[in-house]
């Protein structure tokens, strides 16, 4: 069943004069974007920087309703209503004055849920996320990878069956990034959710996704929809085979 349906989505920005825009100049960021995502599917949106992929994700998160076309999520028109989703950005956005646990409890706190109960539910997950002993640490005492895992755990604790991840590993070094990808595959294998994953890393997109949507440079549109047929659970060895190179070639060709 389709959980997200985007049809002919276009987006214009009016560039304000103080940012160098001439009178009422309209900049088109997205043009006729259409795609569908099925329940529990892992879909990557891949494209060069500035192609509007983050803008698209903000629309899916309900943060931006100023666009043409329609986006329906769980049969709700996002222009009219919001659907709760899990959302994560490149920066970890952990509050430095809160402990790791207090940061992970944030979604529950905002909803006004019972925090004691939530903490009991989070504790077993801390182990899974490799953060077991760090419950009471403040973010600055954690490594980059740990902070990103904490941010992802907080994302997991948000209400909603859809995860929108905007280059979540973009700020990490190559080695940490690889560990995070392996570990995301592992966690996602256990707790399935629908994922829309924005990235500009081709390898990452192929390794993680069921489908890769390739976007053109601005004004962005989807130029290719590639199904990745590797079986799950996946591992890094797949990145060495000829099938992987075939996908990579395909993506590079559509990126022009």
């Amino acid at each position: 069943m389709e959980q997200i349906v985007a049809e002919n989505v276009s987006k214009y920005y009016t560039v304000p004069p103080e940012k160098g825009g001439r009178n009422h100049e309209r900049l088109q960021v997205l043009t006729n974007v259409s795609f569908r995502v099925e329940r529990n599917e892992f879909v990557s949106i891949l494209g060069p920087s500035g192609c509007g992929k983050s803008t698209l994700l903000r629309m899916l998160a309900g943060l931006d309703r100023d666009y043409e076309g329609t986006i329906r999520m769980e049969d709700v028109d996002l222009k009219k209503n919001r659907v709760p989703v899990c959302y994560m950005l490149q920066k970890d956005h952990l509050l430095p004055w809160r402990t790791l646990m207090e940061n992970v409890l944030l979604p529950a706190e905002i909803e006004g849920a019972d925090l004691k109960k939530e903490a009991e539910a989070v504790r077993p997950m801390l182990r899974e996320f490799g953060l077991e002993e760090f419950e009471n640490y403040r973010p600055h005492a954690l490594s980059g990878g740990m902070r990103q895992r904490a941010a992802l755990l907080r994302t997991y604790r948000m209400r909603g069956d859809i995860m929108l991840l905007d280059e979540p590993f973009g700020a990490l070094d190559e080695i940490t990034r690889m560990q995070m990808q392996d570990w995301l595959l592992d966690v996602w294998g256990k707790h399935r959710k629908t994922v829309v994953f924005v990235t500009h890393n081709i390898e990452e997109a192929i390794l993680l996704s069921d489908r890769v949507l390739v976007m053109s440079p601005r004004p962005g549109t989807i130029v290719k929809d590639i199904r990745i047929d590797f079986q799950r659970p996946r591992n890094r060895d797949m990145l060495l085979g000829s099938q992987f190179l075939g996908y990579k070639k395909d993506i590079l060709a559509s990126l022009g």
Binding site: L63, K91, L106, M158
Partner: peptide
């Protein structure tokens, strides 16, 4: 980004 994130949390 922080404002966006909190706003998505409701």
């Amino acid at each position: 980004g922080m404002d966006d994130l909190l706003s998505v949390m409701g």
